[in-house]
């Protein structure tokens, strides 16, 4: 764990999807994409469909697809995403 990292958890009603250390998260917020780094202020936001991209402490980029609505909370260096359905996609791919 580096001093820039924080926790990212993604859960759906069917079960937990992801629990990882990350240094940066981008998520499709209700008003547009949100970028979240360590020590972000407490926040609750709605999510729309779109890409959830996060960077692992080693610098690798990973991506999940939020297929429907969702909710995101930031608190104490922990980002929780509650989504209806999440699909995964090839981490390195950009299209």
């Amino acid at each position: 764990m580096t001093d820039k990292s924080f926790r990212l958890e993604v859960l759906t009603p069917q079960g937990p999807v992801l629990s990882a250390e990350t240094t940066a998260v981008t998520a499709p917020g209700g008003l547009g994409y949100l970028g979240i780094l360590r020590n972000h202020a407490p926040m609750v936001s709605t999510l729309g469909p779109g890409r959830i991209v996060y960077r692992d402490p080693a610098g690798g980029m990973h991506q999940l697809i939020n297929e429907a609505g969702g909710l995101l909370e930031v608190r104490d260096n922990e980002v929780t995403i509650l989504a209806d359905r999440v699909g995964s996609s090839d981490p390195g791919r950009r299209d």
């Binding site: 936001s45 709605t46 608190r75």
Partner: peptide
């Protein structure tokens, strides 16, 4: 409590 909570939208 956090003194303020950002909510979006």
């Amino acid at each position: 409590l956090p003194e303020k909570l950002i909510t979006e939208p």
